[in-house]
């Protein structure tokens, strides 16, 4: 069996929504170079609180790039409230699964989206429950430091 599903390889080889949004309404970045994965999400959000556009940049393995791509697909055109519900599990399922030791590489997608939404709330003075937003990626999975 191959390491990755066809779906993962497709999103890895042809990532959707790659790039930068210069005038983004919210930007989230999680991970760090020491751990070997960084993901950055750019959101364009309209007055109805709907994600009009989303782009990502990722430094990481095949699983990290594919999860970034899939996650952006899953939230594009969706209301913020829905995007915030996106879980790592949903991303993994949409990719037809990931090898167990690769799951931690896909967690960043969920975290990066939350971080970008939080950035948008902060910039616009919108109130939110901090409990909905996890602290920055805590490196629990990666025991390198």
């Amino acid at each position: 069996m191959a390491l990755y599903s066809e779906k993962v390889m497709d999103h890895f080889r042809n990532p959707r929504n790659v790039g930068v949004i210069e005038d983004a309404d919210g930007i989230g970045e999680v991970g760090n170079p020491v751990c070997g994965d960084i993901m950055k999400i750019y959101l364009k959000i309209n007055d109805e609180q709907v994600i009009n556009d989303v782009k990502f940049e990722t430094f990481g393995c095949g699983s990290a790039i594919a999860s970034s791509s899939m996650a952006t697909e899953l939230i594009k055109g969706k209301p913020l409230s829905e995007a915030l519900q996106l879980t790592n599990k949903a991303v993994t399922e949409a990719l037809d699964g990931l090898p167990p030791h690769k799951l931690h590489c896909s967690v960043l997608a969920e975290e990066a989206i939350k971080s970008a939404v939080k950035d948008y709330y902060d910039k616009n003075g919108i109130e939110y429950d901090p409990a909905d937003f996890p602290e920055d990626h805590d490196c629990e999975a990666c025991h390198v430091h």
Binding site: C35, G36, G60, C61, G62, S63, A64, H101, K102, H104, C105, A141, C142, H143, V144
Partner: peptide, 10 residues
């Protein structure tokens, strides 16, 4: 890389 070794460290 860590992600090819199957462990989390490079």
């Amino acid at each position: 890389s860590a992600c090819t070794s199957g462990s989390l460290d490079p």
